[in-house]
Structure formats: C-alpha cells, structure tokens
C-alpha cells in the first residue's frame, strides 16, 4: 500500500503533465475540428463534418500526395546514406564507433531552425556551393538548390538523418561478426552477405528509422518555409496557415486529427512488422 502511494507520488507529475499539456489540448483540437468558423476567424459552436469533407478537396489531396512524396524521398535518401555509413562504421574500432555516434548527436544541441537558416548560406544562388562550382568552372549558371522541392528535401534529410542513422547503426553494429564470417565460410560474396544476412536482421531498425523520419517530414513546416521559399506547401504548412494566417481553426484542427490518424496507422503497421514501441521513444 505504502509502496503504491510512493509510486504514485513519482508518477503524478508525469500524469498531470500528460493530461494538461497533451491529452486536453488534443481533445480540444478534436472538439474544434467538428465546429464551424465564421469569416472573421471566430468559432461558431455548431456541429459539422464539413471540415473533414473539405480535406477531400483536390487541392488538399494534391498537397497530401506531394507532402507524402517529399517525406518518402527524404526517408529513402536517409536509408541510402545510413547503410553505407553503418557498414563502414562496423569495420572501425569500438572507440571510433562511440565517437562517431556521439558526433551524430551533436547538431541536436543547436536549434534546428537556426541550422536550417544556415543552409541558406550554402544553397542560395550566391551561396557557398554555387560560387565554388562557378569558380571551378563546373557550371556556368548558378543552380537552383533552394526555394524549390530540392531545397526542402535537402533540409529534411539534413534535419532528420540522425533519426535514421542511429537505429540503422545500432542494428548493423549489433550483428554478431561470426554471422558474417559464417556467410563467408559458406561461400557468400559481400553483396549476398548484405542481402541475406545483414538486411533481414536490420530491417526492424530501418522500419523504426523510417517512421521517425517520415512522420516529422510530413509536418516540418519551417523547413518548407525557409528552404522551400513558401512556394511549396506541405501539410505542416497547411495546418500552420489555417491557425495563424487563414484563422480557420476548425479546419486546421480537422487536418491535424487526420494527420494523427495517419500516424497512428503507420505505427500500427510498424508494430505489425514486429517493431517495438520502446525503440521509437529511445531518443
């Protein structure tokens, strides 16, 4: 009995935090999504499904598809970077591995908004990359590296890469060396070893990373704002605009709820493939 009270005292702040700052706002968003807005941005308390039906409009569907495409491309690029990185890391000493994983984490200490602004210096027409390439004579006209989809993807990959790197690295590094030696011993060539031994064993890490990359990639509006130049809207922008510019809170809420449901299903799929919830909350 005493023990239970003791436990409760420790858990209580977290429970209160979760209820006040997570659950109640979410319920409020859910509630808002069924209301109507007036033309001045106010809220009329009349129940409606209209907000949800609005999502099905062609413009928004297109935006959803585009958002998802950007998120998918970001995820794929992250996977393509993470595997070679992890495989090379495998061949290094334990010390080196530790340092490298720490280095991946370091950018997290800086605000991601500021880091995204940093990319402007590199990517703009008169930026570092363009001037370097121009001086070297590789190109004769500056490349459009930002204020388009490419800019968004570069920003997304940069910001979200650690979420892929860490689970992929940890799953690749966890493979017992003797398994790879057994593969060699049985006549498997490097590519076959990767396909038959490494890949199946690290798939859960990739699932985990994909989820951690894909979901934020749909919603990170500031990257699209800064590097997409406001021309390209992803769902994150749409929601932000509904709340801040269009002042249509009910519609913004409806899209948010929709996004939460999509996320929920993605997590469901992740769990279906044997993913563990603990791995998602790891960092």
């Amino acid at each position: 009995m005493k023990n239970k009270i003791f436990k409760l005292v420790f858990i209580l702040p977290i429970i209160i935090y979760s209820i006040v700052l997570v659950l109640l706002p979410l319920l409020y968003v859910l509630f808002l999504s069924f209301l109507t807005s007036d033309s001045y941005g106010g809220i009329i308390y009349s129940f409606t499904f209209k907000n949800y039906l609005n999502i099905l409009e062609f413009t928004y569907i297109k935006m959803f598809i585009k958002s998802s495409l950007i998120a998918i491309i970001t995820t794929v690029i992250c996977i393509l970077i993470s595997y070679p990185f992890a495989l090379i890391l495998r061949t290094k000493s334990k010390n080196f591995q530790n340092i490298a994983t720490k280095l991946i984490m370091i950018p997290f200490l800086t605000n991601s908004l500021i880091r995204t602004y940093g990319w402007i210096i590199l990517l703009r027409k008169s930026g570092v990359i363009n001037t370097t390439l121009l001086t070297l004579g590789v190109i004769n006209k500056p490349l459009s590296l930002m204020y388009n989809n490419l800019g968004i993807i570069i920003g997304m990959v940069y910001t979200l890469l650690p979420f892929m790197l860490l689970p992929v690295c940890s799953s690749v590094l966890a493979i017992d060396n003797s398994l790879i030696e057994a593969g060699r011993d049985l006549g498997a060539k490097p590519l076959q070893i990767f396909k038959k031994i490494i890949l199946p064993q690290t798939l859960s890490g990739v699932f985990n990373g994909s989820l951690m990359v894909f979901i934020p990639a749909i919603g990170y509006f500031f990257i699209s704002d800064i590097l997409g130049g406001g021309k390209t809207m992803i769902i994150g922008n749409l929601i932000k605009n509904q709340f801040l510019s269009a002042r249509n809170w009910p519609f913004g809420s409806a899209i948010s709820v929709f996004l939460i449901i999509v996320t929920f299903f993605l997590v469901k799929i992740y769990k279906h493939f044997g993913g563990k919830m603990d791995d998602l909350g790891g960092f």
Binding site: D176, S178, E181, A182, D185, L186, G187, A188, K196, Q201
Partner: peptide
Amino acid sequence: DATKREVNTIFQNLALFPKMTVVENISFG
C-alpha cells in the same frame, strides 16, 4: 579467401542465421 576454400567451420557460438529457418540455414551454402 574463405569464400572459395573447400572447408567449412562450425563456430563457437554456432552463428546460425536468426532470421532463417532450419532448412534455410542448412541450404544457405
């Protein structure tokens, strides 16, 4: 290289491929 030598090893920790069934493990080589 080990890949091409006509010898096979039973490893100390056995090194069975965890994501393969018995048959898949045995037929791997």
